[in-house]
């Protein structure tokens, strides 16, 4: 049981990292907390579903199109809404939350709930690892999580857009004087975050079904990981993802499934009490620029 639990804990951790990394990326670069993140995740899943089942496109095409479309809607959300309240963090919170709420509740109103609303798995097979049956979809999740984390690291360290991202993240004013267009970078950051949500949806949704409530769940999970790891820190997301992922699986196996949420909540409260900015966080008590 122990070895199997470890395997599933690893998978669970990968899922959490995948869910949180987009939210974290957007915040880390432009300081925008995208509370519509869960809604974008669900929206992309419904988009794929629609193209797959109503337009009868092949799965890879509908997945790709929905990722592209979600990325674009992230950019549009920034251009048409967030740009007008840029810099007013409190208004940004309300606006993104309002957008997310509208999207999710619209889907709920349309009544698109049920087992038939799901996406196909990539490869429907499973095999034994460490005494547990693991389907290939879950292995793919772990691999894609690894690839994305590695890819992001390479992107932000070796490409000029990625370096500009880091520049803005470190010091927006100085970056401006070097001719980096902070609005363009912020647009990109929100749309990349949305794109990552869509990628996560494409590979994680096949394990369950698409439901508006799932959108709130995804947001909660992403926030929990970011709070524990420290907002804006990629390393923090990975460590926090692993911590929560393992804690949840082990409580599930050894104590009982209904204790998992308590473990997450306890972890959050504990981290807040001991190190409010999260394990790797650098959030400040005061405004940073003095």
């Amino acid at each position: 049981m122990f070895a199997g639990t470890v395997v599933f804990a690893l998978i669970n951790s990968s899922i959490l990292i995948l869910l949180a990394i987009g939210f974290n990326l957007t915040f880390g670069i432009s300081g925008v907390a995208n509370f519509a993140y869960g809604a974008l995740y669900i929206m992309s899943a419904y988009l794929s579903w629609t193209m797959l089942n109503l337009l009868h496109l092949p799965f890879w095409a509908s997945a790709a199109l929905s990722i592209v479309f979600t990325t674009i809607s992230g950019a549009m959300m920034y251009r048409f809404v967030l740009l007008r309240v840029r810099g007013q963090a409190l208004s940004e919170v309300i606006a993104t939350f309002g957008i997310g709420l509208s999207i999710l509740e619209l889907f709920r109103y349309l009544g698109l709930v049920g087992f038939e609303y799901t996406l196909p798995v990539f490869w429907n097979e499973s095999f034994m690892i460490a005494g547990a049956y693991v389907d290939i979809q879950r292995i793919i999740i772990v691999l894609i999580a690894l690839v994305l984390v590695l890819g992001l690291w390479l992107f932000t360290h070796f490409t000029s857009t990625g370096l500009a991202f880091r520049g803005i993240a470190q010091d927006e004013r100085t970056a401006l004087t070097f001719g980096i267009d902070s609005d363009r970078i912020a647009t990109l950051s929100v749309s990349f975050g949305a794109g990552l949500a869509a990628i996560a949806a494409t590979i994680i949704i096949p394990l369950g079904s698409i439901a508006p409530d799932e959108g709130y769940d995804v947001l909660i999970k992403a926030l929990a990981v970011c709070i524990i790891g420290g907002l804006g820190s990629t390393g923090g997301v990975i460590v926090a993802g692993v911590i929560i992922g393992f804690a949840e699986r082990f409580t599930d196996s050894y104590i009982g499934s209904h204790w998992t949420m308590i473990v997450s909540l306890a972890a959050i409260l504990l981290v807040l009490a001991i190190k409010p900015s999260g394990l790797f966080g650098q959030q400040k008590e005061l405004e940073e620029r003095i």
């Binding site: 915040f27 963090a89 709070i227 008590e285």
Partner: peptide
């Protein structure tokens, strides 16, 4: 902490 942390925690 400043700003949005409060929003995140009160939401979840």
């Amino acid at each position: 902490l400043r700003g949005i942390y409060f929003s995140m925690v009160t939401l979840i």
